[in-house]
Nucleic acid binder design. Sequence first.
DNA 1: TATGAATGAGGTTTCATTCAT
DNA 2: TATGAATGAAACCTCATTCAT
Lengths: 228, 228, 228, 228
Amino acid sequence: MIKRPTKAAALPSTHAGAERSAPASREEAPASSRAAERRAAIVEAAMEEFIARGFAATRLDDIAKRAGVAKGTIYLHFKDKESMFEELVRTVIVPVVAKLNALPPPTGSVRDLIEAFAGNFLKEVIGTRRGDLVRLIVAEGPRFPSVADFYYREVVSRGIAGMRALIELGIARGEIREKDLARYPQILVAPAMIAVIWQSLFARHAPLDAQDMLRVHLDLIFGERRTT
Amino acid sequence: MIKRPTKAAALPSTHAGAERSAPASREEAPASSRAAERRAAIVEAAMEEFIARGFAATRLDDIAKRAGVAKGTIYLHFKDKESMFEELVRTVIVPVVAKLNALPPPTGSVRDLIEAFAGNFLKEVIGTRRGDLVRLIVAEGPRFPSVADFYYREVVSRGIAGMRALIELGIARGEIREKDLARYPQILVAPAMIAVIWQSLFARHAPLDAQDMLRVHLDLIFGERRTT
Amino acid sequence: MIKRPTKAAALPSTHAGAERSAPASREEAPASSRAAERRAAIVEAAMEEFIARGFAATRLDDIAKRAGVAKGTIYLHFKDKESMFEELVRTVIVPVVAKLNALPPPTGSVRDLIEAFAGNFLKEVIGTRRGDLVRLIVAEGPRFPSVADFYYREVVSRGIAGMRALIELGIARGEIREKDLARYPQILVAPAMIAVIWQSLFARHAPLDAQDMLRVHLDLIFGERRTT
Amino acid sequence: MIKRPTKAAALPSTHAGAERSAPASREEAPASSRAAERRAAIVEAAMEEFIARGFAATRLDDIAKRAGVAKGTIYLHFKDKESMFEELVRTVIVPVVAKLNALPPPTGSVRDLIEAFAGNFLKEVIGTRRGDLVRLIVAEGPRFPSVADFYYREVVSRGIAGMRALIELGIARGEIREKDLARYPQILVAPAMIAVIWQSLFARHAPLDAQDMLRVHLDLIFGERRTT
DNA sequence: TATGAATGAGGTTTCATTCAT
DNA sequence: TATGAATGAAACCTCATTCAT
């Protein structure tokens, strides 16, 4: 349902070819899902290309090729390149939001919760396609206000709010000393964001142990780690 | 009216070709300064445009218009659009590096030092053209490895090293408790970077008091602020 | 799977073609009338669209939508866009020709006859869809020689011949003085044609009382109108 | 001054090739006229193509080829295809208007005047490129209201007004009997217009002696021609 | 050195036509 | 028969780059 979690992870930078398309389905597809499949293939291909080259430098031709469809087919699903980009971001982000909303209720220590969250982020975002999407949004945001708006509304503001709640809980329970932190949940997330960007840009020069860094950061906030 | 007389002329550093104007001929100063002026105007205009639209979407026509030169003139200074972008980043970043290197020797408390530094960053980077340049590098880095490399080499690695030195000093002096922080100076800078990005993307929706946030972050690292 | 069972395969360019539907098969009426209905709907829709936009600018998509059929259906009735246009003109013009041929035998004065004819033209052509068709033929004729040919053969030449006969009758009866008029029946029709075109192009700027104009023209030819 | 009266009269229907462009001029061109020349070449080529195929079916590529310029060059002179068409019509029509305005003052008989006028029309419009332009306007007018407007304002309304003045003069002098004709100068022009259209569409099937037809028409209006 | 008209490859988008269902 | 998703050629237009002046 979530679109195909890790599959096309390869990311060959250039389009490998086009061994996608008509995936033998044929008999298993319930008729109308054919369109959905194709749309998904286009979305996937477009995300790869947009991430690899940015909006302006991406060619519809390459998206089509990678998705295994003809150029014209894209226009059956999207009005034009711009709205494709905008809808694409929405499409990809929605499941993320769903996941955030489905978070378990806060039981156990706040630090445990945040560590779990960080672990998840580490696995699912930093250094993955999803992380690249974040960088893409940072890159194109100013030229696509609607994308930045959407991202702020759906992800950032909720994330900030959630973090703030956790921080306040941590303060109330005495786990967190720095009371002002609740005013800037951004501080809590900042190293994770930096890790995302670092992986895209500098990992080659200086690999970053994001997991360890996040741990140190939590130590800073919660005090020296427990014996674990 | 005058762009920036002689200044930014320096530049290439690593740089590829760019034998630059001023072919030794003529009356030295006047002739070459004309060229330098023009080049500076182009660099300035290009930066504005690249920041506003990104590399691919920027038109040389617009750069020329903004710089007040003819389109062909750009090619007297730069081989093509790509190398213009690469050299541009170098040109703009060099003075920053110079400044970093000219930092006063560490006297006074580490916190004071870092606060001074943050204050400077606040004034000169966050929410300014310079901050946008950072976002531009984040945006275009993957497509311009040479730019990312240069930026890493000249700014990031030095900045990290400098921060690390400060952190170690802080630890040695007992100002900083969290010893592992020295391994991840990124944590120290992360909120500042986040502030830079936030201003570009989300300031409209939720203004961020960067100064206050940085203060809280320093409290977190150095412990509750002194009475000041 | 099969292209076009037997039907419209003929379509040899000149000839009225349009053996219309009814491939002899099946239960005659019901099945074939469905097809005929559909074809009629397509023809009607196509005429509207061609008139509104001209041949090249008309989209089959729009024709299909207006006709309430799927795009593919059009190809069950017509080989391609060009032959659709050609057959369309034929289809629409045939009844006109039939009507011309069914004209009553010349009784009464020639002027009465021509006035009746003009009245009819006024009501059924000038300012109507049919008039637009004339303009369409003028517009597309050069690119569709077969259309121009057909129109000349079926409508123009017969119309001219008919007019000439009337004029000669008028001359013989002494109603018309200008004997040379018989050599140029176009003169008789010219104002009517001009009225057709005027309505399409300039009615907005300067409405034209076509009826009155035609009357004046007849006065010119037949002499001052009778007391009526 | 009038652009090159008859020159490229050949009209090869398909673009002959491209032996136009840089016509050796070079030394004779006063620098800025180079642009004017090119623009003229484009206008000329565009008129040929638009006349031959209509607006929608004309390819910019063909215009460029025929004009002997690159595709991009067209966009140095015209914003896009539509405005090229609109400006083109204006450009071509302006000299016509100028000519109309420069008509000699009415001396001699009205019939002589009108005959002179008709003779001119015969030579310069009917069966010429200029005549085709009229047909083009009739064809595209509904889709280019601005063109129809312009044509009405600059040519039609002035022409009608001029004709009306002549007719009234003719009536006053007793040359014309039918007084109502002054209300419909269109009648006077109608056969000429019909001739224009006839030449484009039907000349192949039935050549029309336009000159003789116009004479007959004038006989109709002025009474049997004098012995001349 | 500086100009900007000219170029033409290449990008986005449209739309007639096909074909599996 | 009828459908309409899919195709891909071809159109318009942009813009980095060149070059005569």
